[in-house]
Nucleic acid binder design. Sequence first.
DNA 1: ATGAAAGCGCTAACAG
DNA 2: CTGTTAGCGCTTTCAT
Lengths: 353, 353
Amino acid sequence: MSSKPVGIKDVAAAAGVSVTTVSQVLNNVAYARVGAETRDRVRQAASRLGYGPNRLARALRTRRSGVIGVICEEIATVPDAGRVILGSDEAARRRGYNIMLISSVATGSDGPSESDVAELLDRKVDGVLYVASGRRALRLPTRLTGLPAVLVDADDVADTLPSVKPDRPGGVRLAVTALTDAGHTRVGMLNTSDEDPARQSTLHAFQDTLADDGLEFRGDLVQSGPSTAAGGYAAALRLLKLENPPTAVFCFNDAMAMGLYRAAAEMGLTIPGALSVVGFGNQEMIAGNLHPALTTVELPRYAMGARAAEHLIDAVEGTPGTRTARQAVLECTLVQRDSVGPVPLNRGVTPWA
Amino acid sequence: MSSKPVGIKDVAAAAGVSVTTVSQVLNNVAYARVGAETRDRVRQAASRLGYGPNRLARALRTRRSGVIGVICEEIATVPDAGRVILGSDEAARRRGYNIMLISSVATGSDGPSESDVAELLDRKVDGVLYVASGRRALRLPTRLTGLPAVLVDADDVADTLPSVKPDRPGGVRLAVTALTDAGHTRVGMLNTSDEDPARQSTLHAFQDTLADDGLEFRGDLVQSGPSTAAGGYAAALRLLKLENPPTAVFCFNDAMAMGLYRAAAEMGLTIPGALSVVGFGNQEMIAGNLHPALTTVELPRYAMGARAAEHLIDAVEGTPGTRTARQAVLECTLVQRDSVGPVPLNRGVTPWA
DNA sequence: ATGAAAGCGCTAACAG
DNA sequence: CTGTTAGCGCTTTCAT
C-alpha cells in the first residue's frame, strides 16, 4: 500500500541527470558516451530506489515484449509436461524472457487453435513454442505466419517450422542394448496396439538393434496390447507362455512393463533372476516404485524445452532469415535400476537345456 | 511476412469514424452514446480487418495488464501440478486474463523468491498465484505487498493472504468410510514416516473417522514408513503379520498402497477378497495400473487452480478492501475402483473364527 | 558528454 | 452523438 512504483524519472531526478542518460546507462547502449562517474551515480540511484523498468512500456516502444508464448497440449494429462515447461522457462529466463502459458486441448491433427494464437498475438509475444502431446504432424493457424515458432515433439504438415524431438530410435537402442549387453539373445518385446505414431518406429528400432547385434528377429517374440498395465499383462502372458519364451523383454512403456511384472510373478518368474526387463519413458511413479525398480529409458524432456526456447529466442533475435537448423534431435538416457540381470543358467541360446 | 499489424486507427479509417468511437464501441463503454448503425459499422470493420487490440498499449494506459503471474514450485516433480495450472489458466481466460508462468524451487519455508516476484512486478501482472508443493506455512517477499495474491495449498506465516486448499481430513474420511461402509471393523493404516505436514493430520482424521463410526482405534494397526512403495511394503509386512491383522487398510498415498499390494501378494492375500485397500492421491499412473485397480481419493487440483484464479481476479477487480473469504477449502472425491470388497468370511469381528 | 522531444497504440477526459 | 487531445513509461533520434 505504501510504495508507489518508481519510474525512470525518479531515478533521473535522484541522480541529477535526464531520463535519456538513465535509459542509456541502464541499457548499456553501445554508442552512448556517458562519463564513468555519471554512470555510477545513475546505477546507484537506480538500485537504491529499487528501480525496475516497466516492461510493458519498454515493449510498446521497442516492439519486443520479451515474452514467449508457450502453448501446451494436455498439460494436465501428459506425464512430465512440467519438465518441458520447466526447461523452457529456465532457458527463457536466462535470456531475459518470460513465458506466457496457454493450455490447449489436442484435437485431431490440428495444432494450436486460431483463438489461442490470437490471444498470444494480441499480447505481442515475440514467438511461440508449441508443446505437443502426441508426436504427430499438425496444421498450424494461418495467423501464426510471420511469428517465429518452434514445435516440441511434433512436425508441421508443411514441414517448414523448426522442431525439437527426442531420439526415440536411439532410446530404444539404448534399452535393447542394455539387454543384449547382459548376454541376452532371445529378447522379446511388448508393443502397443494403440494408434500411436511411435508404434511402428519403436518396433523398427527394436528390429534394427537386434540386427546390428547379429541377433535374429522372431515375430512371435513381439506381442502387442493397449499401452497400459492391463494390456502389458495380457501380452506378456502370451509372450511368456511361448514354447520358447524370451529371457529378456523390452517394453513400449513403463505401464506395460508393470503388467509384465505381474505376469512374471504369476508364472513364478523372478526379475531379474529368470527374466530381465527394461521399460521406456521413465515414469518415476511406476519405474521407481516397482520391485525390483525398473531399468528404463528417459526422454530428455527438460532439455527439449530448454533447447526449443533457445532456438526460438535465437530466431527472435537473429536477423530475420538467419534460421538455424530446422530439426534438433535430443538423446535419451538409460536409467539403470534393478530389472536387468544375466541370462538364467537353465535358459539361453539352447532352450530348455 | 505480409500482414502488418492492424491498429485501432485502421479500423477507425475503415469505418469512417474516430478512434475514440472505435474504442468505445469495442469496449462497450457504458456512458458512451454511439448510434446503433455506427456501432455496426465499427464492429464490422474491426472483424473484417481482423483487429485485435494491442494489449500492451492498453495495459500501459489502463494500468491493468490482464495478466496474472503464477509461481509454481517444483512444477517438474510435483504430480499433477499441471492440473492446478490448467484450472487457473482456464478460469483466468474465461475472464479475459492470461497467465505468466514462473517455476521456482521450493526452499525451506520460503515462498517465492524476491527475484521471481520482481520479474512479475516489472511485467506489471495484476496479481500473483503461488502454487506450493508442500502445504506448509511460508514467508512471502516484502515486495509482494500491495499486489493481490492467493496461495494454493499453503498458508503464509502472517496468515494474511487468502488461500485455497483441499479438504484433506474430509478426503481421509471418504477413504476410511469406503472401508467401514463395506463392513470392515478392523481397519489398519499405512502412514508416512517422512517429515510431511500431512502426516499428523492424516492420522488424526483416520482416528476421528473410526471414532465416529463407533470403531475402536488400535495403535498397532497403524504402521509407518517412507511414503514410497518400498516403505509401504515394509510397513505392510509388519501390519499383515500381526497376530490379528486388519481386513482393510487405508494408505497415506498410492505409492504406499502399491507396496501393500506386493506384501499382500507375497502372503497369498488376494485383493479385495482377503484384504481391502484404499489409497490417497489418485496417481493415475499407479492407481489405474495396479491390479486390481486401486480405489483412492482424488484431490481437487483443477478446482483449486480455478478457484484460486477466481479469487485472485475478484480481488484484482474488486474495490480494494473488499476482500472475500480468506480460506477456501475444496472437497476431495472418492474414485471407486476395484480394491474394496466385503469382509472375508473367515475373518471379521471375531478373529480367526 | 548530456538533454529535449517525439511517439509506440491505446483509453479517457473534455469539447463540440 | 462524435472528435480532439493528453498522456501511460519507456527508447531513440536529433540537438546542443
